[in-house]
Simulated assay, not measured.
Amino acid sequence: MPNRSTLISYLVLFFFLVLFILGINLGEVDSVFEKGVAICLSCIGIG
């Protein structure tokens, strides 16, 4: 039987993966990419 900290680590990893897959399925990748491009362009004075 794994100790308590190992179990918590696996639960956190599982929770992260669920949220990661959910974000990909909801199309958040495009949203994050568009915002990142807009921020970078405004930082260098183009946007």
Rank of each mutant, 00 (worst) to 15 (best):
L17T: 01
F16G: 01
G23I: 03
I8Y: 14
G27T: 08
V29A: 14
V12A: 15
F15L: 03
I21C: 02
I46D: 02
A38G: 12
F20C: 02
R4Y: 04
L19I: 15
G23D: 04
L11C: 13
D30Q: 06
E28W: 13
D30R: 11
I46R: 08
N3L: 04
L7N: 09
C43Y: 03
V29F: 10
R4A: 12
I24M: 07
L41A: 10
F15Y: 04
L41S: 06
L11E: 01
L19P: 00
G45Q: 03
V18S: 00
L19R: 05
F15R: 02
L11A: 06
V32C: 03
S5K: 08
G27K: 06
L41M: 06
C40Q: 06
V37T: 14
L19H: 03
I39Q: 00
R4C: 14
Y10L: 08
K35E: 14
E34V: 07
N25A: 15
G45S: 10
V12D: 02
I46Y: 11
M1Y: 08
L26Y: 11
L17G: 00
S31D: 04
S31I: 11
C43R: 10
E34S: 13
C40Y: 09
T6M: 10
Y10Q: 07
V37F: 04
N3H: 07
C43D: 06
M1W: 03
V29E: 04
I21E: 11
G27M: 02
G47Q: 03
I21M: 11
N25L: 07
M1I: 14
L17A: 01
V18W: 01
E28P: 00
S31Q: 04
Y10W: 12
R4M: 15
L19W: 13
S9E: 10
V29P: 06
S9C: 05
F15G: 03
I8V: 14
D30G: 10
V29T: 07
G45M: 05
F20W: 13
S5Q: 13
M1Q: 13
C43T: 14
L19T: 11
E28G: 06
S9V: 07
R4T: 15
S42Q: 14
C43G: 11
T6N: 15
G27H: 00
S42K: 13
G45V: 04
I44M: 11
